[in-house]
């Protein structure tokens, strides 16, 4: 469990990025942090694995204060994928990039091999095994960054903007993988602006604005509440827009995903 207790964080240049934020991420939870640019999302999740330490307040990971331990130790259980993959990648080949942490954590060579192959397949990177990450497209680099963390199978996976640069098919693969991880009891935290992706994944949502948490709830609750979304600079998902636009025809409007929308509309249209 990650327990953030009344945390404030101020960067060295004086920017107050978090103001008395409290939040609890339970084991096995799937959480999305959303909100406007500069709201403090990245700052918040960097506290989860000790990359940043609170200016005041405290962060407990499985009851250990992040101030009393090292990032290296925390990383084994809390994996972190950076928003910008360039801040994370440094090896000569994709294969080495993914192996690096595994070796650091003391995996034996045969396991390193297996995990690398598994991760390359998962993220559709097989053909780039021997390629330098810096010769890849933006979306491919992001997938290398994801692969290198998912490979060591941390108990908690924190992904800052995982869908950046990804096409529809890659996003769908990622969505299914996240759901699978989560059903195996892993904790998954994503920071994202991708409303349509969230609408299909349906995690618990935390909305941030100006260094504070302004709303928390299920995807259905949050994504169908235009007033709250606007405060966090987010738009209502397209499916919900359609149902809201048809409310006077007796449709429920708390619909966010494609499958439910299709089912509800089919029922009505077939009668016609």
């Amino acid at each position: 469990m990650i327990d953030v207790k009344r945390v404030s964080f101020t960067y060295p240049n004086g920017t107050e990025a978090l103001r008395e934020v409290s939040i609890r991420v339970r084991d096995g939870e799937f959480l999305a942090v959303m909100g406007q640019n500069g709201a403090g999302k990245t700052t918040l999740v960097k506290l989860f694995n000790g990359l940043l330490k609170p200016t005041s307040g405290k962060v407990l990971v499985d009851n250990v204060n992040t101030k009393d331990t090292s990032v290296a130790k925390l990383a084994r259980s809390v994996g972190f994928v950076f928003q910008n993959p360039d801040n994370q990648l440094f090896c000569e080949t994709v294969e080495e990039e993914i192996s690096f942490a595994l070796r650091n954590f003391g995996f034996d060579e045969s396991r390193v091999k297996r995990r690398v192959t598994w991760a390359l397949n998962l993220l559709g990177l097989n053909e780039y095994r021997k390629t330098s990450p810096f010769m890849l497209s933006g979306g491919e680099r992001k997938r290398v960054a994801l692969a290198s963390v998912l490979a060591w199978d941390p108990k908690v996976v924190v992904m800052d903007e995982p869908t950046i640069g990804q096409d529809h098919r890659q996003k769908e693969k990622l969505r299914q993988f996240i759901i699978q991880l989560n059903s195996q009891g892993k904790t998954v935290v994503i920071v994202t602006h991708d409303v349509e992706f969230v609408a299909e994944c349906a995690p618990r949502i935390v909305l941030m604005s100006s260094g504070r948490i302004v709303a928390e709830g299920s995807s259905k609750e949050i994504l169908t509440d235009p007033e709250t979304l606007t405060k966090a600079s987010i738009v209502v998902p397209q499916i919900t827009q359609v149902f809201m636009g048809l409310a006077d025809l007796g449709f429920q409007f708390d619909v966010i995903d494609l499958l439910s929308a299709k089912k509800l509309l089919s029922e009505r249209l077939i009668k016609k």
């Binding site: 909100g35 406007q36 640019n37 928003q83 933006g138 903007e161 950046i164 640069g165 602006h193 409303v195 606007t230 966090a232 600079s233 987010i234 738009v235």
Partner: peptide, 10 residues
């Protein structure tokens, strides 16, 4: 991909 990091209203 100029809006990949932008919030949706932005």
């Amino acid at each position: 991909e100029p809006t990949s990091f932008l919030d949706p209203l932005g």
